[in-house]
Design a protein around this nucleic acid. Structure first.
Lengths: 225, 225
DNA sequence: GGACATCTTTACGAAATCTTTATATCGCAA
DNA sequence: TTGCGATATAAAGATTTCGTAAAGATGTCC
């Protein structure tokens, strides 16, 4: 797992230092900008996972920076401010700030709010796909593709294939397969397996009479490759 | 346009009243619970779009309620508390609270944080319009078009379709769909789904007998494509 | 209070899936 | 080659799950 990168945009060196120490000791990678302009450039050249933005910058107002960032940046932006001013807070939040903390802030709270924001922003979009040759199993979407074409499987067929895919290359015994898919009390029903392996082969193998993916290990079980 | 629903869980009637007035005048629908237990029941029987949870409840601690809610509820939960205690804040945020405000809070700020939280949870990613073939779902306006013609859907039909549209290509289980649309305590009412999928198909499919968008995955759920 | 839209529930035929049985095939050793 | 155990295939039941219509219940708006 890569470290999450956090960009600090703040003109006060002491604050930056303080944040840097705290963040780095919590396993974040820290990038710093001392002005709004620099912050915009840095974030554009290498978008961080989260931005800590001081609202009171000398060159441009933090609100402007926030506005410009939000034209393209959609990960969390947490505002830090000496202003405990409701108008400011409301404006910042309504312009896309993820959170707003007033200085002096408690570092524990800041860290928790950072964790919360990053956790939320991690889009679960791209799902883990187990692929094996021309077969792709999407374990989240619960779909199967062969040569990029969707294949329709019944629930049990899918469960079986997913189990194979998760154990690519390993020999899975009859007992084990039956126990996992049908349950503990079905461990002797090897005929079920023969039937379902048969239908699976028809659906995913180029030539079902000469299977390349689901290999029979006679007397033991099956192996997926 | 449907009002967003907010559930208030707080034992102090004055606070509930204050929140109710403020929220309703900002066009939210308000539901109230005076205890944690009641809050859990209400949210399970009809999931609100956001929960305001007082951490200092008499029956169960707010932390417990938060924990129980988060086992299934994944929309925003904003904590309200008289405690300005860092340990409390960190714990709440780390256990899934979306935000944490200390009483007395400023109503303008609370409203802004509510807007922010609901906006974010709507998962409108980049474009507020999800399109899929000839179907277009506008998640902001809550409208649906087919071949550029507006389609009239009831609230529940829309909620279901929007949920499908946000998860294009993924198989959504009966359980999940029921939990999201009707609430945690409806997870076994699969007949609801059959009825509503039926009416949806009549409205959005070219040929409802041969659906191209809402595909049934027998024994598991449905998939939108 | 009544008309209307919407949601919930029930009933039943249709479709999909699973289970079982029967028969065919394969690999291997005597 | 023949016989045996293990495997594969096909197809007929059996069962579960789905889809649809329609009646009843509920809520909402004037």
């Amino acid at each position: 797992m890569n470290k999450a990168e956090i960009l600090i945009i703040d003109d006060e060196p002491q604050i930056r230092k303080l944040l840097q120490i705290n963040l780095e000791s919590n396993d974040y990678k820290v990038i710093q900008a001392s002005s709004g302009k620099e912050g915009l450039i840095l974030s554009a050249s290498h978008p961080p996972d989260l931005i800590l933005l001081d609202i009171g910058l000398p060159d441009k107002s933090g609100h402007e920076i926030l506005h410009e960032l939000r034209e393209w940046y959609n990960k969390p932006i947490i505002i830090l401010s000496v202003q405990d001013n409701e108008t400011d807070i409301v404006s910042a939040l309504d312009h896309g700030a993820t959170d707003y903390l007033t200085k002096p802030f408690r570092t524990g709270e800041l860290l928790a709010r950072i964790r919360s924001a990053i956790g939320r922003s991690q889009n679960t979009e791209n799902s883990p796909i187990v692929s094996c040759g021309d077969i792709e199993v999407d374990l989240v979407a619960r779909t199967v593709k062969r040569k990029n074409e969707a294949i329709k499987l019944t629930s049990t067929e899918y469960n079986l294939l997913a189990l194979f895919a998760k154990n690519e290359g390993k020999v899975l015994t009859h007992q084990y397969l039956l126990k996992e898919i049908w349950g503990y009390s079905y461990q002797t029903e090897t005929q079920y397996l023969r039937v379902f392996v048969g239908t699976l082969r028809k659906k995913i193998e180029e030539n079902p009479n000469n299977p390349q993916h689901i290999i029979t290990e006679s007397g033991v079980g099956y192996r997926f490759q």
